[in-house]
Amino acid sequence: MSNEPLRLAVIISSVREGRFGPVIGEWFAAQAKERADLEVDVIDLVDHELPYAHSFSPAGEAADILAKISPRLEAADAYVVVTPEYNHSYPASLKHLIDWHYTQWRAKPVGFVSYGGLSGGLRAVEHLRPVFAELHAVTVRDAVSFHSPWGTFDDDGKPKDETAPAGAAKVLLDQLTWWGTVLREGRAKTPYQA
């Protein structure tokens, strides 16, 4: 059994101008960084403009772009996807990231931090669960959800009332570290075959 911290990739998925994702993503990453059992890597998709189609990008250009993000996904033992809800689902930028990668997600846990209007982004999360199941990833049950979060965070990027969000983040991180530890040990003992 390894005592090394789990490598957690926190993926900020929205790339829209004026997006709120970085506020929520950085707050959540700060919660995770407080834990000694996690090593956190924040991956903001705005910094990784993936090619839009295999056939439209020169092979070298696509390889250069993917060389910046793919190893970070591969190195992760667990993921947290920070997603808004767009049109009752998740953003195209996230779908694009998922579609460019396959083996990186296998036998690893995925958690969700969502935000949006009345639904708090939970419809996006429900759309993502079967997508990650198809990739042989394990989604954890609990999520952190922010309903209409605009105006509920202060100027320092923290929730004005942090009690409920911090409690939800702890539950999510506890589940994620349990699954992450078990699956990391399982992969080390017996390589996963899809």
Rank of each mutant, 00 (worst) to 15 (best):
S57I: 12
S57D: 13
S57C: 15
P58C: 11
P58N: 15
A59M: 12
A59Q: 12
A59D: 12
E61H: 14
E61D: 15
E61A: 15
E61K: 15
A62C: 11
A62V: 00
A62E: 09
D64K: 15
D64I: 08
D64S: 15
I65S: 14
I65M: 15
L66P: 09
L66C: 11
L66K: 12
A67N: 10
A67L: 03
K68A: 14
K68N: 14
K68G: 15
I69D: 00
I69L: 05
I69F: 02
S70N: 11
S70T: 13
S70L: 05
L73C: 00
L73H: 01
E74F: 09
A76S: 08
A76M: 03
A76C: 07
D77N: 09
D77T: 07
D77R: 05
Y79A: 04
Y79M: 04
Y79P: 05
Y79H: 09
V82Q: 00
T83C: 05
T83Y: 01
T83Q: 08
P84F: 08
P84K: 08
P84S: 07
E85H: 05
Y86I: 01
Y86V: 01
N87C: 08
N87M: 07
H88A: 13
H88M: 10
H88P: 08
S89N: 12
S89W: 02
Y90R: 11
Y90V: 10
Y90C: 05
Y90K: 08
Y90G: 08
A92S: 14
A92T: 13
S93M: 07
S93G: 06
L94V: 10
L94C: 06
L94K: 02
L94P: 04
K95E: 13
K95W: 13
K95R: 13
H96V: 03
L97I: 03
L97Q: 03
I98F: 01
I98N: 02
D99C: 04
D99V: 06
D99S: 04
W100S: 07
Y102Q: 09
T103S: 14
T103L: 11
W105M: 01
W105H: 01
W105S: 00
W105T: 03
W105A: 00
R106L: 11
R106M: 13
R106H: 13
A107N: 09
A107R: 11
A107D: 07
K108G: 07
K108I: 00
K108T: 00
P109Q: 06
P109C: 04
P109M: 03
P109E: 09
V110C: 06
G111Y: 01
G111N: 06
F112M: 06
F112E: 03
F112D: 05
V113A: 03
S114A: 10
S114E: 02
S114F: 07
S114I: 07
Y115V: 00
Y115Q: 04
Y115N: 02
G116S: 03
G116L: 02
G116H: 02
G116A: 03
G116T: 05
L118T: 13
L118F: 11
S119T: 14
S119Q: 13
S119L: 12
G120S: 09
G120H: 02
G120Y: 00
L122T: 09
